[in-house]
C-alpha cells in the first residue's frame, strides 16, 4: 500500500465516520429524541477517530495518527458497552434508551462501529509500506478536494454539536434523561 493510496483511504474513512454522526442528528431532530450524556460521549469518541484520520490526510501517514484513532475507538467501545449493559436486561419501562434503528439501539450500532474501526486499524497496520518518515510528515501538504470536503464535513459536525449540546445542557451537567433543550 503506497502512502498516497493510504491517504485516499483515510479520506474515505473520514467521510464514513461522519455518516453515523449525521444519522444521530437525523434521529435527534427527525424523531425528537434527545442524546443522553453517554450518547454524547460516544459522538465525541467518533470525532476523536475523525481527528486521527484528518491528521493522516493533512500530514501524511504516521503511526501516531492511527494511535489517535485507536485510543478514541477503545474509549468509545467502553462507553457504548457500558450503555448496552445498562439496558441488557429489559424490564417493564426500561426497554433501552431511545428508539431502535434496524433492530438495534444507537449505542449498539456505536459499539459495532468502534469494533469495526479497531479491526480496520489492525488490518491497516499490516501494511508497513504506507508509513512515511518523521521529516516527510512534519509539514502540511496539499489535500485533494474530497479531502477538504471531508475535513469541513467533520469540522462542521463538531461545531454543530457544540451548538446543540449547549442548547441541550447549557452551563449545567447534562441531564441523564433529557426531555427538552434547557436553553430554549
Amino acid at each position: 500500500m503506497t502512502p498516497t493510496f493510504a491517504r485516499k483511504l483515510n479520506v474515505i474513512f473520514l467521510i464514513m465516520i461522519c455518516i453515523p454522526l449525521i444519522g444521530a442528528y437525523t434521529i435527534q431532530f427527525g424523531r425528537g429524541e434527545f442524546p443522553c450524556p453517554l450518547c454524547l460521549l460516544q459522538r465525541l469518541a467518533m470525532l476523536g477517530i475523525a481527528c486521527g484520520a484528518m491528521m493522516n490526510v493533512r500530514y501524511g501517514i504516521r503511526a501516531s495518527h492511527y494511535g489517535m484513532c485507536m485510543i478514541s475507538a477503545v474509549l468509545g467501545a467502553c462507553i457504548s458497552t457500558r450503555q448496552i449493559l445498562l439496558h441488557i436486561v429489559p424490564e417493564p419501562g426500561n426497554t433501552g434508551y431511545g428508539s431502535a434503528v434496524m433492530g438495534m439501539h444507537l449505542y449498539t450500532w456505536a459499539l459495532l462501529i468502534f469494533i469495526a474501526t479497531i479491526l480496520i486499524l489492525g488490518v491497516v497496520f499490516l501494511f508497513d509500506s504506507q508509513f512515511e518518515s518523521k521529516e516527510a510528515t512534519s509539514k502540511t501538504r496539499s489535500v485533494p478536494a474530497l479531502g477538504a470536503v471531508a475535513f469541513w464535513l467533520a469540522f462542521g459536525i463538531t461545531v454543530a454539536n457544540v451548538c446543540t449540546t449547549f442548547l441541550e445542557c447549557g452551563f449545567k451537567q447534562c441531564p441523564e434523561n433529557p426531555t427538552s433543550y434547557l436553553m430554549l
Binding site: L44, L47, N161, T165, F166, C169, C174
Partner: peptide, 8 residues
C-alpha cells in the same frame, strides 16, 4: 460536555 466538543 460542550467544552469537550469545543476542544475537539
Amino acid at each position: 460536555m460542550t467544552l469537550l466538543f469545543i476542544l475537539f
